[in-house]
């Protein structure tokens, strides 16, 4: 039981961060607006949660320009995908008990 709780990742306790990771593991990359619409959150909310995922190095950020407008693409890093899968497995284990 103790081990399972250790595998639960604090970074994914929050709904928005959980949502961001869910979307990024099944897509190569998504931009800020895609994610905002998908999750139905405000700019500020999404940006702050994204910052924290960036800090944990779970998300890779690529800034580019599309028709001279800034377009930020987000993708999950390998570490991020692994951590996320571990988190889901821990939840599944927990639900079995």
């Amino acid at each position: 039981m103790k081990n399972i709780l250790q595998d639960l990742n604090k970074a994914f306790e929050n709904k928005v961060r959980l949502g961001i990771m869910s979307a990024l593991v099944v897509n190569d990359s998504l931009n800020f607006n895609n994610l905002k619409e998908l999750l139905g959150v405000t700019d500020g909310n999404l940006a702050s949660h994204m910052k924290s995922l960036e800090k944990s190095e779970y998300v890779h950020v690529k800034k580019e320009f599309l028709n001279r407008k800034p377009n930020t693409q987000y993708s999950a890093t390998t570490a991020g995908k692994e951590a996320f899968i571990k988190h889901i497995k821990a939840i599944e284990q927990l639900l079995k008990h």
């Binding site: 949502g19 869910s22 593991v25 099944v26 998908l38 939840i91 639900l95």
Partner: peptide
């Protein structure tokens, strides 16, 4: 506690579907 994690799994599934299909 369990309900929260069940909800989480449901959310994950919905978002994966909606974002990829």
């Amino acid at each position: 506690e369990k309900q929260k994690y069940l909800d989480d799994l449901q959310d994950i599934k919905t978002i994966m579907e909606r974002s990829s299909r």
